[in-house]
Amino acid sequence: MPVNVTKRPKRKPGQKAHLTRAKIIAKALPLLDDNPDLGMAGIARGLGVAPAAIYAHFRGRLAEIHTEVIRAILADVARPPKPNETCEAYLRDLFDAVFAAFYKHRKVALLFGRKIAANYYLNPLLVERVLYALSLAGLPENEKVVALNLVMGSLVGMITIECAYPTSLSPAKWSLSQSNTVDALPAGEYPQIKALKIKLGGAVNARSVHKPTPARAQRFADSLIAGLKAQFSIV
């Protein structure tokens, strides 16, 4: 008598590992914090799965993972506005929040500018609340877009310069490499750099210290707000 054999449904890649997009990103972020040059195979090894298990969730492969990592870092930076809050107060808090978020992930921070340039609405709530803050300053609709570009550009610049740790060298070796670069420059062609060598070296040291310094974020906020006031005559 024939025996009926129930066929199991074919498992899709990633099912056995119980992976989801959110779980992959949660595990990929600390891996990329340690090594931002990690590829798909390295991320898969870190998760203890085959690369195909990740491909099943991220058809765009590494670029898509990078996008989602930056989106995850930005998830909570744009808080709701407070009652009777000014545009200036909101923007100052925003710069602090973005700075703090990326300072925890300095080795992937350089991806921020690239991903925002590719997708301005990577975090649509961030854009929406910046536009709302600009409306609090009385900006007319046709000027909000220009002002938004200035805000986003200032955030990218702040993260790139103040938060990102753009090298695999130790802080001491990075500082030494920058000093050696300045030493090798001809004094006749680069007198300003030569004259400021010590102060420029101090700035490199400050950037390499793994300790949050929110005052640096406020310097960028100060410059942005002064520029908005001058360009758009807002209060």
Rank of each mutant, 00 (worst) to 15 (best):
D33P: 02
T67S: 06
L134V: 07
L126R: 03
V69K: 08
F95D: 11
P13T: 10
E141R: 05
R8M: 14
V98L: 09
V69Q: 07
N142P: 01
A63Q: 06
V130K: 05
L32T: 02
L134R: 12
R106F: 02
R21S: 05
N84I: 03
A72F: 08
K115M: 14
G14N: 12
F95M: 14
Y132Q: 13
A97F: 10
K16F: 09
F112M: 12
H57G: 13
A44F: 11
K144G: 03
A72I: 00
A133S: 11
G48M: 03
C87E: 09
H18P: 03
I24M: 09
A100V: 03
K10S: 14
L47D: 10
P13M: 07
Y90E: 02
V69F: 07
L38N: 04
V69M: 02
R45L: 07
A109Q: 01
R71W: 08
V98P: 01
D33V: 00
G138N: 07
L31I: 14
Y121D: 15
R61E: 01
P83N: 07
E143P: 03
P9L: 09
D96L: 15
L29C: 03
L94H: 05
R21M: 12
I65R: 10
Y120C: 11
V77I: 10
A100E: 08
L32F: 07
K23R: 15
A50R: 05
K12E: 03
A50K: 05
R59V: 14
A118V: 00
L31H: 13
N84R: 15
L31T: 13
K23N: 11
I43W: 14
D93A: 15
D76F: 14
Y103H: 08
F95K: 15
P9W: 04
A117S: 13
E64M: 07
L74V: 04
L111W: 01
K104D: 05
A44R: 04
A78L: 09
S135C: 11
P36Y: 00
G39Q: 11
L47S: 12
P140T: 07
L91I: 13
A133I: 02
I65A: 11
L111E: 00
A41T: 06
N123I: 07
